[in-house]
Every structure is written in C-alpha cells, then in structure tokens.
Simulated scan of single mutants.
Amino acid sequence: MYKRVLLKISGEALAAGKGFGIDAVFIHKIAAEIAAVHALGCEIGIVVGGGNFFRGVAQQAIDMDRVAADHMGMLSTVINAIALQDAIEKLGLFCRVMSAIEMHEVAEPYIRRRAMRHLEKNRIVIFAAGTGNPYFSTDTAASLRAMEIKADILLKATSVDGIYTADPKVDDTATKFDQITYSEMLRLNLRVMDTTAVSLCRDNNMPMMVFSMREPGNIVRVVSGEKIGSLVTA
C-alpha cells in the first residue's frame, strides 16, 4: 500500500506499562514487527519519543527551565533510538540512528540527503533528538521528518485503537472516528498530537494513521492497507 512510511513510537510505549525505562521483551516484539514491514519492501523511517525517561513538560520538570528540560527529553530519545537500533540489528537488518543534536560517537548527524540515501539502500533509519530545538515535541519532529523524507503516510502507534471523541479509557461513551480531518481535530480539541504537528500535517497534505500497537501485527496490517485505526487527512 505504501512505499515509504514514517513510524512514530512514543517513549511510554517502549516502557510497556512499566512507567520508566525500556521493556526488553516488548522492544524486541516491536523490532520484529518493523522487520516484517521491511520484508514487504517498505522503506521505514522511525521517530521515537523519550517519555519513558524524561519529558520537558512532565511534572518532574516543573521547576526546571523549559529549554534545559527539553534538552534532557531529547537525550532520552537518543537512548530509546539506540536500544531500538540494537533490537533491529539483532534481526540481521541494517539500521542507522540519526540525531538532530550532534553526538558523533553514538549516532550520525541528521542530514536529509544522507537519510534519503539510507532509505534508498533499504536501511531502516531512526530519527532521534526530536527537531533539535526546545519547545517542539517529538510529534512535531515526526511530522517534519515525514515530509522531509517524502513519506507516503505518517503512522502514529498509540495505546488505543484510533481517535475517539474522548479518552476511551476514562469515558465509556467515547465514539471512534474511522476518518477525520486535521481541521476537525483542531476544532474538537482532540489531543492526539500537539497543535503544531497537526497544523504542519494539514498545511502540507500529509495523511496520518493512528492505530494501536498493543495488538501484534498491526503495523504490517496498516502498511498492507487494512482498515484499522483512524485515518486523518487534510
């Protein structure tokens, strides 16, 4: 269905319910799903969050300078990116971590043309350190990287199976959207992504699929064109 995709994985997902750190079993399951997508001939870019270690807007950062806190959050994404790279490479695939903050000993610097070349050579690319700037979330980084690498679609893997009118974990009356526009998301104030990321996708006509990563095989199903999750269009 898609030749090139950008997959956004939250840091909290890598903790697999433990709240902090990386669940070794779960990260290898994610790596196996990514390998299955790669086997279909799909080129994959990945943006990982860092919320399982530190978030610049979290309660733990309440007394910190926002810029310093956001820089700590960016470094958290690098930890997750290296862990995911290791899990993917253990499956015999080639994977590169590219960081928006230069740290040559552990990751390549993010250069768009080099990233495109890695994808063309069937290497999986993990984009770390967000956009490299404070005040921008990893959701915004995912939107930006999806457009820079000319991805066909942005895939947002979450803990729920799509976009709802309210949090289905709290509100039993919440109803699911099979399809919705970015403008409707902003109007209804649906907190699936931050408004900067939503506006960026809307203005550049980047479609997004929001789906659950808790069910094994969902990433392959989405890439294969199965109707799961919620499709967001401009």
Rank of each mutant, 00 (worst) to 15 (best):
Y2R: 02
R4T: 15
I9T: 06
S10D: 11
E12M: 10
A15F: 06
A15C: 05
I22R: 03
A24C: 00
F26M: 09
F26N: 06
H28C: 05
A31H: 06
A32W: 06
E33P: 10
I34E: 11
A39F: 00
A39T: 07
G41L: 04
C42E: 03
E43R: 14
I44L: 13
I46M: 03
I46W: 09
G49S: 11
G50F: 05
G50C: 01
F54C: 00
G56N: 09
D63G: 09
D65S: 12
D65C: 13
R66S: 14
V67I: 15
V67C: 04
A68H: 03
A69G: 14
D70Y: 12
D70W: 09
H71N: 13
G73E: 03
A83I: 05
A83N: 12
D86I: 01
E89M: 15
L91W: 07
L91A: 07
L91K: 15
G92R: 13
G92I: 02
G92Y: 06
G92T: 04
L93T: 05
R96N: 14
A100Y: 09
V106H: 01
A107T: 12
A107L: 07
Y110R: 12
I111M: 11
R114Q: 12
A115F: 01
M116I: 04
M116T: 02
L119M: 06
N122G: 00
F127V: 11
A129T: 15
T131G: 01
T131N: 04
P134E: 08
Y135D: 06
Y135Q: 05
Y135G: 04
Y135L: 12
F136L: 13
T140P: 02
A142W: 04
R145P: 03
R145D: 00
M147E: 08
I149E: 00
K150A: 14
K150Y: 03
A151T: 08
A151W: 10
D152E: 04
D152W: 00
L154E: 06
K156Q: 05
A157Y: 00
T158L: 09
S159A: 11
V160R: 06
D161A: 03
G162K: 12
G162S: 12
I163N: 11
Y164M: 02
T165K: 11
T165Q: 07
T175L: 14
K176P: 01
K176W: 05
D178C: 03
Q179C: 05
T181S: 15
S183M: 04
S183D: 15
M185A: 08
L186K: 08
R187Q: 12
R187Y: 07
R191H: 10
T195F: 07
T195I: 09
C201F: 06
D203M: 00
N204Y: 13
M206T: 03
M206F: 00
P207V: 06
S212G: 14
S212C: 08
M213L: 15
P216H: 13
G217N: 10
N218Q: 13
I219R: 00
V220M: 06
R221V: 05
S224L: 13
S224I: 00
G225P: 06
G225I: 10
E226M: 11
I228M: 08
G229C: 09
S230V: 02
L231K: 10
V232W: 03
T233C: 01
T233G: 02
T233D: 02
A234G: 12
